[in-house]
């Protein structure tokens, strides 16, 4: 009998303890969608044919004024040497790949680019900025060579277009070697899976 009373109490308690149902959200909000189906594939739910008019209290922003100022010097005025340039170094060639995380290729002195490593650079502005920080635009030192001083970080960077991990170089100094004779004719890791035409129908896989 005691056992039955206990079970009954637990059942009642479980019923009462169930959290209050959440209120439904306004129409068009993803929170108001119906319960998911058991189909393992993604089920498209709400088409967004028309953009609703802004509500009365909704913020509509004014155009943003850029606050970050860059240098106005031409590429030739990049400092020849900056930061701590003592100790071992890597040869780095600035390489630009649209919509792909990273700074470019590095290799050891005397090695070929076939043994090069694709890196992202992390910097402390008070130690040493990336070389292109001295230029009007980041692409102004495309295919320039540098001696890069620093170390590889113990963590990696996530490259969102190709879903791969990229090595990070913590820069503490650089020496400019001027323009390279040729571009590095090699794609960064898994770049093929991130090329624009691969996912053209849905656009770049990021915002």
């Amino acid at each position: 009998m005691g056992l039955l009373i206990g079970l009954a109490l637990i059942l009642v308690a479980a019923d009462l303890a169930h959290p209050r149902p959440l209120p439904t959200l306004s129409a068009g909000n993803p929170g108001s969608l119906p319960e998911p189906s058991t189909n393992p594939t993604a089920s498209t739910v709400v088409p967004t044919a028309a953009t609703p008019e802004p509500e009365e209290d909704e913020t509509v922003r004014k155009p943003i004024v850029e606050k970050v100022r860059r240098a106005a010097l031409p590429a030739a005025h990049t400092p020849a040497r900056h930061g701590d340039t003592s100790g071992s170094y890597l040869i780095g060639q600035r390489t630009l790949v649209e919509d792909y995380c990273g700074w470019g290729w590095v290799r050891k002195e005397g090695e070929g680019w076939n043994k090069g490593r694709w890196i992202a650079i992390e910097y402390d502005p008070e130690v040493c900025p990336v070389p292109h920080a001295f230029l009007p635009r980041p692409q102004d030192d495309k295919d320039y060579l540098y001696q890069l001083y620093g170390d590889f970080a113990p963590y990696r960077a996530y490259e969102p277009q190709a879903d791969v991990w990229v090595e990070i170089f913590l820069i503490r100094g650089f020496l400019s070697l001027g323009p390279a004779k040729d571009t590095v004719r090699r794609d960064p890791p898994h770049h093929g899976s991130a090329k624009p035409n691969r996912f053209a129908e849905r656009g770049a896989n990021l915002r």
Binding site: A120, A157, Y158
Partner: peptide
């Protein structure tokens, strides 16, 4: 595949692991 709290902040175009 990923929530990126620091996208393009510490490294250009990517996020720290």
């Amino acid at each position: 595949k990923c929530w990126m709290f620091d996208y393009s902040n510490r490294v250009d175009g990517g996020a720290i692991e």
